[in-house]
Design a binder for these strands. Structure first.
Lengths: 229, 229
DNA sequence: CGCCAAATTGATAATCATCAAATGTTGTGG
DNA sequence: CCACAACATTTGATGATTATCAATTTGGCG
């Protein structure tokens, strides 16, 4: 078990979006009941079928939350970046998770046991309110994604994914076509064809594993609120 | 404004899934800060673009929660039945809703102003915990639906919708092919073709607006947890 | 340098939406 | 009570989108 550095402490008190604006003593108390968990690149945070009900707040790095179907296809639901949380609701649910979570790069997390987190929330209504806010947005995002899948073309979905990744992780986006396909719900080949079109239009530039967005406006399509990835 | 009947009171204290198991005084207090709202068949509960942040608990009837795309296509996200809630999180979110809600049949709801509900939850941690439970399941269901859309065939999706509707509303299901299409994310014609196949296999029987499920087992496919409609 | 993963592009096939046309059912109003 | 409008159902034919298969090239890393 490792401890927090001073910069990490600083980050939690002043930057982390999940905690931003909450009272300092509340944040301090949360830190006091948490451990630090470290995952190497590609390391598993939780496995499919786990009953893991622990709470994670990413301090640095990125976690990718996926489902794998029986046909072997991967689907990515979420990329959790520093300041954001994963498994926030699992202390309240007793069914096994059908999702797995893996570190995209080396990742450090605040890590709180499920029942400790549960009683902590019970003591702190402002934290509950913050959680409702976050989940509300997550639910909207999920619905938004359902809409996309129901009625947008593959091209449009890929553009939206690029736009969202750009908003969240800035240019250049460090991602491969395979991973974009897993998020957009399509195939690698289709993604590469779309990227090729966008490149010819000078909207993006690409290198192996990297994408620069030149014209973010062109990608935007806000018919149904923003996607969250 | 109308008042609760004795049976409705009875229902809220002993049956309603959202309140089941919560302390009686808490339920009584919630009722005391609520009004009753009545909607005729096809009446609007909330409109798209509304900033409506009120909380609704269905006492009788059914509410359908939909999105309409610019292309005019309807998509149904949720059918809220007696004992369930709608708009639970909107007091915590300040973006306009991109969904509309309409009564499928004559519907009566407990109706609480957004800020009243907000402060009520703040006073009652057990209610917050219940809300997290419900939302957790809703989020799982949404993810489950995303998975379905990404990798199941239209046939399979329709079967799953039938299975879920059967579990929730019992046989015969009162629904038309158009509405099933809106839930499954496909077209009326495809739904009717699938229904035709299932009818030939004696798995279902149909009449205009009604579907009997003879063999629910055949429809089940629990690869990714249950769908919630 | 050599290996492996990623990218690229073309050809083909399958699923499913779309268009179309006919039939059946319900409820309403004259 | 009947006629008719409105809507639900049914089935066939067609076409577009996109997945799948295949073969080649490129780039980075040990």
């Amino acid at each position: 078990m490792s401890l927090l550095t001073d910069e990490e402490r600083e980050f939690l008190f002043n930057e982390a979006s999940f905690l931003k604006g909450l009272p300092r003593p509340l944040i301090a108390e949360l830190i006091s009941i948490a451990n630090v968990a470290v995952y190497p690149k590609d390391g598993y945070v939780t496995h499919i079928g786990d009953m893991n009900s622990d709470f994670f707040l990413v301090i640095s790095g990125v976690i990718s939350v996926n489902a794998c179907s029986s046909s072997g296809k991967q689907i990515t639901f979420l990329r959790v970046k520093a300041g954001e949380v994963y498994n926030m609701l699992s202390p309240y649910i007793d069914t096994p998770r059908f999702l797995e979570a893996r570190a995209v790069s080396k990742t450090r997390c605040l890590w709180v046991k499920g029942r400790d987190y549960f009683s902590f929330v019970q003591k702190h209504p402002p934290l509950a309110a913050r959680m409702f806010e976050i989940i509300g947005r997550a639910l909207d995002a999920a619905n938004s994604r359902i809409l996309d899948l129901m009625e947008k073309s593959v091209d449009e979905r890929i553009k939206r994914v690029l736009n969202t990744l750009h908003a969240k992780f800035d240019s250049p986006i460090m991602i491969t076509a395979v991973e974009i396909a897993d998020i957009a719900g399509t195939t690698t080949e289709s993604v590469l064809r779309t990227l090729s079109k966008l490149r010819k239009l000078n909207i993006i530039e690409t290198q192996r594993g990297k994408i620069w967005i030149n014209e973010p406006e062109t990608l935007r399509d806000s018919e149904f609120g923003e996607l969250i990835i």
